[in-house]
Amino acid sequence: MDVFMKGLSKAKEGVVAAAEKTKQGVAEAAGKTKEGVLYVGSKTKEGVVHGVATVAEKTKEQVTNVGGAVVTGVTAVAQKTVEGAGSIAAATGFVKKDQLGKNEEGAPQEGILEDMPVDPDNEAYEMPSEEGYQDYEPEA
């Protein structure tokens, strides 16, 4: 019985440690998101679009440190934060509304985080759909 109880105690310690790591990862992701939003706020009209992409990228980098179902929630929060940063930029006159959601080359930025393969159960990952990809044929 002692062996059984000791095993359960060790398992509990492992769960607590994993929860603490997840909590730490979420806190880091939130900190990076805040950094990115402050970065966007300090940019001029020309830099705002690039700044919004930076927020998304920093958040995406930190999301990889967070495991399990938390990833889905962090990704949703990050996307809403990026959308909010863009709205703030438009409201303050840093950028025109028609410039939001495009990178410096004018290509749409939507789907940055949505296409990231995420499995809350950590069982399997699927690649994003290939609808947006084109076949590449090298020139002879």
Rank of each mutant, 00 (worst) to 15 (best):
Lys6Gly: 01
Thr75Phe: 06
Gln134Met: 04
Gly86Leu: 13
Glu130Lys: 07
Lys12Gly: 06
Ser87Met: 11
Ala78Trp: 06
Ala18Arg: 00
Val15His: 01
Glu57Cys: 08
Ala30Thr: 08
Ala11Thr: 05
Asp121Tyr: 13
Lys102His: 10
Ser129Gln: 04
Thr59Asp: 01
Ala56Arg: 12
Glu61Trp: 01
Lys23Tyr: 10
Gly36Lys: 06
Ser9Gly: 03
Ser87Asp: 13
Ala17Cys: 08
Val16Gly: 05
Thr54Cys: 14
Gly36Glu: 07
Asp98Asn: 12
Gly67Ser: 10
Asp115Pro: 10
Ser9Asp: 08
Ala29Trp: 10
Ile112Asp: 08
Val15Ser: 00
Leu100Ile: 11
Gly7Arg: 04
Lys45Met: 09
Gly41Thr: 08
Val55Ser: 01
Gly93His: 06
Leu38Cys: 06
Gly84Arg: 09
Val3Leu: 10
Asn122Thr: 02
Glu20Leu: 01
Pro128Ala: 14
Tyr133Ala: 08
Lys32Gln: 08
Gly93Val: 10
Leu8Gly: 00
Thr44Tyr: 15
Gly25Asn: 06
Val118Trp: 14
Ala30Glu: 00
Thr22Lys: 00
Thr44Trp: 13
Leu8Ala: 02
Gly25Ile: 13
Asp2Ile: 09
Val55Cys: 07
Val95His: 13
Val52Glu: 01
Val82Pro: 08
Glu105Thr: 13
Glu131Asn: 08
Asn103Pro: 04
Lys21Ser: 10
Leu8Ile: 05
Thr59His: 02
Glu105Val: 15
Tyr133Ile: 08
Tyr133Leu: 11
Glu20Phe: 14
Ala27His: 08
Glu61Ile: 09
Pro117Ser: 06
Val55Trp: 14
Val70Gln: 03
Gly36Tyr: 13
Asn65His: 09
Gly36Asn: 12
Ala53Arg: 14
Glu137Ser: 09
Met5His: 11
Val70Gly: 00
Gly101Thr: 06
Thr72Pro: 01
Glu35Arg: 07
Asn122Tyr: 09
Val66Thr: 04
Glu137Trp: 05
Gly47Ser: 14
Asp98Trp: 05
Val77Trp: 15
Thr81Lys: 05
Val82Gln: 10
Val49Arg: 12
Lys97Met: 01
Val48Pro: 09
Ala78Asn: 04
Ala19Asn: 01
Gly93Ala: 01
Val49Trp: 12
Met116Leu: 03
Ala29Ser: 03
Leu38Glu: 05
Glu104Phe: 11
Ala78Val: 06
Gly86Glu: 13
Glu114Lys: 07
Leu8Cys: 01
Val70Pro: 02
Gly41Pro: 00
Ile112Arg: 13
Ala30His: 00
Met5Phe: 08
Lys97Arg: 05
Glu13Thr: 07
Thr92Val: 15
Asn103Gln: 09
Gly47Met: 11
Tyr136Ala: 05
Leu38Phe: 09
Glu35Cys: 15
Leu38Pro: 00
Gln62Arg: 07
Ala27Glu: 01
Asn103Trp: 13
Gln62Met: 11
Ala85Trp: 03
Glu137Met: 10
Ala17Met: 14
Pro120Ala: 08
Glu130Phe: 04
Glu83Ile: 05
Asp135Lys: 10
Lys43Tyr: 14
Asp135Asn: 10
Leu100Asp: 10
Val48Ser: 01
Ala124Leu: 11
Glu126Phe: 07
Gly25Asp: 05
Lys6Leu: 03
Ala11Ser: 00
Asp115Thr: 11
Gln109Phe: 03
Ala69Ser: 08
Asp119Gly: 14
Ala19Phe: 15
Tyr125Lys: 09
Gly132Pro: 03
Gln24Arg: 11
Glu137His: 05
Ala76Asp: 07
Asn103His: 15
Glu126Val: 02
Tyr133Phe: 11
Val40Tyr: 14
His50Asp: 03
Gly93Phe: 09
Gly101Glu: 00
Ala76Gln: 10
Asp121Ala: 05
Leu38Ile: 06
Leu38Gly: 08
Lys34Gly: 03
Glu130Tyr: 10
Pro138Ser: 02
Glu114Asn: 09
Thr64Lys: 10
Ala124Glu: 07
Lys21Asn: 02
Ala140Asp: 15
Glu130Trp: 09
Ala89Gln: 03
Gln24Glu: 05
Thr22Trp: 08
Lys80Pro: 03
Asn65Met: 05
Lys97Gly: 13
Val118Asn: 06
Val82Asp: 04
Tyr136Val: 07
Ser87Tyr: 13
Glu126Gly: 04
Val95Asp: 12
Lys32Ser: 11
Ile112Glu: 08
Ala29Gln: 03
Thr22Tyr: 11
Glu83Gln: 07
Lys32Ala: 06
Gly68Asp: 00
Ala19Met: 15
His50Ala: 03
Glu57Ala: 07
Val26Arg: 00
Glu104Lys: 00
Tyr125His: 10
Ala56His: 07
Asp121Phe: 05
Met127Asn: 14
Pro120Ile: 12
